[in-house]
Computed example of a mutant assay.
Amino acid sequence: MKEISIKDIAKLAGVAPSTVSLVLNDKAKQGRISDAVAEKIRILARENGYKPNQVAVSLRTGSSKILGLIIEDISNAFFASIAKAIEDEAEKYGYRVLYCSTENNTVRGNELVNLLFQRQVDGYLISPTAGMENGISDLLKAKQPVVLIDRYFPTLPAPYVLSDNIAGASEALEYFIAKGHRNIGLITSDFPLMHPQQRESAYTQTLIKHNIPVNPSFIYKVPYTALHHEATQLIADFIKSNAELDAIFFTTNYLCIHGLGSINQLGMKIPDDIAVICFDDHDLFKLYKPAITAVKQNVQEIAETAMQFLMHQITGNGEKIEMTKVIATEFIIRDSV
């Protein structure tokens, strides 16, 4: 079915195409068009499903009113929540959002940056994977509005918003130790990303602070590419080979979900046989028996701050503000320790 055009609406309304254009671009008053004619045009446009050509609008106004959001994985609960919160915030500013997932693939990530650049989006919200420095650097050189989410590159002068990974993970480890646990395992990913590395660093430093030896065999890095059943078995094997473990800290929720399957597979009970804390909460953790203690990230504040930083760049009002923010986490105590 052919899309209706401005000329088609003009014919139906019995007016010139320029009159329709003025009305649909909210310039009826400037064009001295009567309220009755303007309302007739709007009704005809609505009833006939008129949709403006976004490319033409972008060329005319210099703004697409579209933002590009590049995240790790839209199926991940944390990133799905971030995406929804950013979409809601963007709508308040009159913007729509295009979603893309890198799957932590460097080539894919840089291709997505190029794709959004060609699409002429007005700004970029990016949760970068390793190796995306050049693509993001090119955006900065081109004076494109950019905000990094959840992680950043120390070598790039890009605005960023992320959770306080070190303080959040340290609080979790302190809780384990306060509860009498000394043989604490760490399960993280083998992918070289900032946030799991910071959480691992907090694990190591907290143990050292309490004069607890850091046992390398208690640290396991699950291959990022491992499928669910593979990761579950690998974690089960790790737990079996370290029978003295009395607690495990998971650096992200999807690994903890695998780990809960592993613990169940081994016939172990939480927290009697092994205590569990996860960095990054999940709805499942509230429903699981026993409920899982977790470090919760403030998704709403991350989204709001990222949008504020981005809109400050887009509006270009000249005022200089600090555009880096590390957001406090919340430690949620449940029944798994």
Rank of each mutant, 00 (worst) to 15 (best):
H181W: 07
P196Y: 14
L227M: 12
L193I: 07
T206R: 15
I219G: 14
P196A: 13
A236Y: 04
K240V: 09
F238T: 08
S189N: 04
P223T: 05
Q205P: 07
I184K: 03
S241E: 07
S241M: 04
P216A: 12
Q198F: 09
E230K: 04
T204G: 06
H210P: 13
L234P: 03
N242T: 03
P223I: 08
T206V: 10
S241Y: 05
N211A: 14
A226Q: 14
S201E: 13
N242P: 01
K240N: 10
V214I: 06
I239D: 00
M194Q: 13
Y220T: 12
V214K: 02
K240E: 11
P213T: 02
A243P: 11
V214G: 02
D237N: 05
R199F: 08
E200Q: 10
Q233I: 02
E244N: 06
A202D: 05
Q198Y: 06
D237E: 14
N242C: 02
Y224R: 15
L234R: 08
Q205N: 15
Y220E: 14
A202M: 01
F238K: 04
A231Q: 04
G185V: 01
I208P: 08
S201V: 08
E244S: 11
D190M: 03
Y224M: 14
I184R: 01
A243H: 07
N242E: 01
L234T: 04
H210E: 15
Y203A: 05
K209P: 02
D190H: 02
G180K: 05
L227N: 11
Q197A: 15
S201R: 09
I235K: 08
L186S: 08
A231R: 12
I184T: 03
H228Q: 06
F238V: 06
S189M: 06
T204N: 12
P196D: 09
E230F: 02
H229P: 06
S189V: 13
I187N: 00
K179D: 01
L207M: 10
